[in-house]
Nucleic acid binder design. Structure first.
Length: 719
DNA sequence: TTAAGTATGCTTTTT
DNA sequence: GCATACTTAA
């Protein structure tokens, strides 16, 4: 049968061992994804299991999407009935369905980081808590970890001693949680925690899902946390048909509560576990795998396994030293240019770094070299202010209780309802026990004053219109009408600030994305999506999920984000002590081991060539710091790589001529028509018109890319 | 009430 | 080196 074609013995076993607990230790590049797809297909085709009886949990939405696409293509089945998704999306689906058993209603909002911070800030203000003594981020972290360990506010002191500090944490946690409940909102961690408690506390609901999910498969099991472990443990307890796939050498999410013991102890957690190891790597050449092995063998906590490859390669990985981060970026740009000349697709080149902040110099270098690139991660598209504002409007439309979102939009764009008036409305709402949206319609002149009242009436009328729109019109119509009514695109386009121009572009892209979403939703589900369907998808979406595999551009991302992907040409940069391993991981051995695994993940993405880079100095914050090469470099087998010293690279033009780096004094900036200039994102161009003087001049520029932009002098440099 | 100007703190990593 | 949060002037 075609599903089983081209599988090796171990993979075949994974596919056909359908009954009972199964642990698959799948090394990097060992055909894990193929096996999971084949196994799912096998269960449906050969074992005649209804798709509805399967539960497949992936690590990213993108992986879920791919799995669905491949299955629906090869098996011709209805994707709607498949329960394939991330823990978060599957939990959301369950929670919306089971809202009757919960204190939330099914239209609950999902709060991200920013919303969390806003709620915490409000609590700090209300209670005048000292942010120095109780750093909000630390508290947020404790709350998150508690939730991932299924410790509710009321359970807090069962696991923590009572003292000055923890008393405060408990108090904030308590308030935070009731604040969210009042807003009918859950944060990411709630999605998991509430699902775990729902199943635990409701035998009939548990039984329902136990019966439904007769076969359960979990990918990237090494990165599951306790809440996730419990959810699966409860569901699979009855039938025991649980297959977990993972690689302890690729566990990189302990800081998010993931517990590597979940995979290390699987054989103790379940009875009669069958274990299969996938040790043949089909991705990387021998020499790269040997390099990776020489690194990872320095870790103490791991399942023993030996990953091997039959692929040969003449090219050894390179270890490259440069003077500083700019030299590093230039070197990578030059190398990629060379690869491009040899016919390589930019799409198959990836730059991997430890922290998102490292991407900037590469952006500059690639722009100068006219290389297309795409950054994955960092600031998520949906986290940008202009987009989040629109999303907040949508949330208020479907969840009237969502005060957090309401406060975000009440004066955005400005409608003259300032802080004072907002406080009055909040007071009014509190006294009348209404949500802010309800209060907007009920408020009277006496409570907020004449002028604010008129403005609120106005806003209320608009709001009423949008509410009706959201009930009647399609998601696309609703969103585009809303954006039109707010007039934000026009506002941004009229601005001189290039950032505002970018915002207008983002909003247009956003509306196009809504359209795209609706189309593919109709394809999958044979019905129009609701606004709620849309918001749910968007809140759980990451940058990785909508990254463009088609467009020919270099990809830049963190080593965390690259998990599960592969590229022909891999550049790992910033291999310095303090960056990789990161400063904050130097103390603890277990943290250090995780950093090592992170590098291991990076190396094992390689299909053809690998280059490891470090810089002798690096600008951190605002000053230049001397760096030490990463301690991990010493662990690499010297037989497996070649060293290159690329010092002074940046002063050396391709022909060997010495050139001076261009220096422009700010005071020298006198712009004139016809002058050549350079812009960080748009590249080089020529000035067509000058309005004003020096840095404040408004320039009309024709860029070499063909784009015509109006830009302020301070954003461009002379060349 | 808002806009412009100033201070600060931030950097691991993400669903 | 940037974005956000806060302060000040109009």
């Amino acid at each position: 049968m075609h599903i089983l074609d081209d599988l090796n013995d171990a993979q075949l076993q994974v596919v056909t061992t359908t009954e009972g607990p199964l642990l698959v230790l799948a090394g990097a590049g060992s055909g894990k994804t193929r096996s999971v797809i084949a196994r799912t297909a096998y269960l449906i085709e050969e074992k005649h299991i209804t798709p509805w009886n399967l539960l497949v949990v992936t690590f990213t939405n993108k992986a879920a999407r791919e799995l669905k696409d491949r299955l629906s293509a090869s098996l011709n089945l209805n994707v709607r009935s498949l329960w394939i998704g991330t823990f978060h999306s599957i939990c959301t689906r369950i929670l919306r369905k089971e809202s009757e058993a919960l204190p939330y209603t099914s239209n609950f909002s999902i709060y991200d980081d920013g919303d969390q911070k806003a709620v915490i800030n409000r609590i700090y203000k209300d209670r005048s808590i000292d942010t120095k003594k109780f750093p909000p981020n630390k508290i947020r972290n404790i709350i998150s970890r508690s939730k991932n360990s299924l410790i509710r506010p009321e359970d807090f002191f069962q696991f923590n001693d009572s003292n000055f500090y923890s008393d405060m944490v408990e108090d904030i946690y308590q308030r935070y949680q009731s604040h969210l409940l009042k807003n009918n909102a859950m944060d990411f961690d709630d999605l998991l925690m509430n699902t775990a408690f729902l199943l635990h506390d409701n035998p009939s609901r548990l039984q329902h899902y136990q019966q439904q999910f007769r076969y359960v498969m979990i990918d990237e099991y090494q990165d599951t946390n306790y809440a996730q472990f419990r959810i699966i443990n409860l569901i699979a307890r009855e039938h025991q048909n649980l297959c977990v796939v993972g690689d302890d050498d690729q566990a990189i999410y302990s800081w998010r509560g993931a517990d590597i013991k979940n995979i290390l102890n699987f054989e103790q957690d379940y009875k009669n576990v069958k274990t299969i190891k996938l040790e043949q790597n089909y991705r990387s050449p021998k020499v790269i795998l040997n390099l990776a092995n020489s690194l990872i063998k320095n870790n103490s906590q791991r399942h023993s396994k030996e990953l091997w490859s039959a692929l040969k390669s003449d090219e050894k990985p390179l270890l490259v030293r440069t003077d500083n981060e700019n030299g590093e970026a230039k070197f990578v740009a030059k190398e990629i240019k060379a690869l491009q000349r040899k016919g390589a697709d930019l799409n198959q080149c990836v730059v991997l770094y430890r922290t998102n902040a490292q991407s900037r110099v590469f952006e500059n270098a690639f722009t100068r070299q006219n290389l297309r690139y795409q950054i994955i991660g960092g600031v998520n598209f949906y986290q940008r202010k202009e987009i989040k504002d629109i999303l907040a409007y949508l949330r208020v439309l479907i969840n009237p209780q969502d005060n957090e979102s309401f406060l975000r939009i009440i004066n955005e764009p400005g409608r003259g309802i300032g802080k004072v008036s907002q406080e009055r409305l909040i007071k009014f709402a509190g006294d009348a026990n209404l949500s802010l949206r309800e209060a907007l319609f009920a408020v009277d002149q006496v409570s907020v004053g004449t002028s604010a009242f008129a403005k609120m009436q106005n806003f209320g009328r608009q709001m009423q219109k949008w509410i009706e729109l959201s009930n009647e019109a399609s998601v696309f119509e609703c969103v585009s009408q809303l954006v039109e009514d707010l007039g934000v695109i026009r506002k941004f386009e009229a601005s001189d600030d290039p950032q505002d121009i970018a915002r207008a572009e983002n909003l247009k892209e956003f509306i196009a994305a809504v359209d795209e979403f609706s189309e593919s939703f109709v394809e999958d589900h044979e019905e129009e999506p609701t606004l709620q369907d849309y918001l749910q998808t968007v809140s759980l979406q990451t940058d990785l999920d909508n990254y463009d595999t088609e467009s020919s551009s270099i990809k830049l991302m963190t080593m965390h984000n690259v998990k599960g992907l592969e590229f022909d040409h891999v550049f790992i940069v910033g291999l310095e002590d303090g960056l990789l391993p990161h400063n904050r991981s130097l103390e603890l051995d277990s943290a250090l081991e995780e950093e090592r695994r992170l590098l291991y993940v990076g190396i094992t993405r390689t299909r053809k060539t690998l280059q490891l880079c470090y810089a002798a100095s690096r600008r951190i914050y605002n000053n230049v710091t001397m760096t030490m090469p990463s301690r991990f470099i010493r662990e690499l087998d010297e037989e497996c790589y070649e060293r290159i010293n690329n010092s002074f690279y940046e002063f050396q033009a391709p022909g060997g001529k010495k050139t001076k780096p261009p220096v422009t004094m700010e005071s020298e900036k006198h712009f004139h028509i016809g002058q050549r200039i350079r812009h960080v994102t748009f590249g080089d161009g020529m000035i067509l018109n000058v309005d004003g003087k020096g840095n404040k001049a408004k320039l009309t520029i024709s860029f070499d890319s063909g784009e015509l932009k109006r830009i302020i002098g301070s954003y461009v440099s002379l060349i």
